[in-house]
Simulated scan of single mutants.
Amino acid sequence: MTTTDHDDTPGIADGRLVDELSTSTLLSAEEFKAAFRNHPAGVAVITADPGDGPVALTATSVFSVSATPPLLVFSVSELSSAAPAITRSTSVVVHLLGADQLGLARLCATSGVDRFAGGWAWERLGTGEPRFLAAPDWIRGTVVTTLQAGTSTLVVVNATHSSGSADESDRTDGRGARPLVYHNRTWHELSERSAV
């Protein structure tokens, strides 16, 4: 731990930095969104069932945190109709989407619709969570903790099961060759031609 001679520097330990950040206007919501439009993100669909029916949502906030233990994080906006059920769930399935699942991404990003009413085949895992069959790569995990962050909730998940191959070179079905990416309010697919 580093110490400083500047006693007037706000610090997280005494809460002054947190108070300062929460009361100051650093960026407007639109400025913040505009900055992130140039930052592409992978697309995933999160499914869960807290006991009162399956829910799903599209997320671009999924990222790995640790390999040992295997942890991932995603955020859920309070504006999502699936947010209350996702945040009450003790387990989730994270579907990592490719370009072939663009329709599924759009469906689960649409507010107020039943994502399980038909059109996309799904099943329940042996542990009870809903899983869309069209998504070849998925990770099932248990929710370790949640953290309220502004108008969203961060969900930390301990991965327990995965469909993905441990070695990409072992794949013969082409899965994962065309990842789906969201950039500047538009869906994109990556391919070997996009490599630099």
Rank of each mutant, 00 (worst) to 15 (best):
64 S>R: 12
68 T>K: 14
68 T>R: 15
71 L>M: 12
72 L>P: 02
72 L>Q: 08
73 V>F: 05
75 S>T: 15
77 S>E: 13
78 E>C: 06
78 E>G: 14
78 E>R: 15
78 E>W: 00
79 L>K: 13
79 L>C: 12
82 A>M: 02
82 A>S: 15
84 P>E: 02
85 A>V: 06
85 A>K: 08
87 T>V: 15
87 T>S: 11
87 T>L: 06
89 S>T: 09
89 S>V: 09
90 T>H: 14
90 T>M: 09
93 V>N: 00
94 V>A: 11
94 V>F: 02
94 V>S: 03
95 H>K: 06
98 G>C: 10
100 D>F: 01
101 Q>S: 12
103 G>H: 02
106 R>M: 11
108 C>F: 06
109 A>W: 05
112 G>S: 04
114 D>G: 09
116 F>Q: 04
118 G>V: 05
120 W>D: 10
120 W>T: 01
120 W>G: 02
122 W>C: 03
122 W>G: 06
123 E>L: 10
126 G>K: 11
127 T>N: 09
130 P>G: 05
131 R>W: 03
132 F>W: 03
135 A>G: 06
135 A>Q: 03
137 D>Y: 08
138 W>H: 10
138 W>T: 05
138 W>I: 01
138 W>M: 00
138 W>E: 00
139 I>E: 06
142 T>C: 08
143 V>K: 06
143 V>Y: 08
144 V>F: 06
144 V>K: 11
145 T>D: 15
146 T>W: 00
146 T>H: 00
146 T>F: 07
147 L>V: 15
149 A>L: 10
150 G>C: 01
151 T>D: 15
154 L>N: 07
154 L>H: 00
161 H>P: 03
163 S>F: 05
164 G>N: 13
164 G>K: 11
165 S>V: 06
165 S>Q: 11
166 A>G: 14
166 A>M: 10
166 A>P: 09
167 D>S: 12
167 D>E: 13
168 E>Y: 13
169 S>K: 11
170 D>T: 13
170 D>A: 14
170 D>N: 12
171 R>L: 14
174 G>H: 09
174 G>M: 05
174 G>E: 09
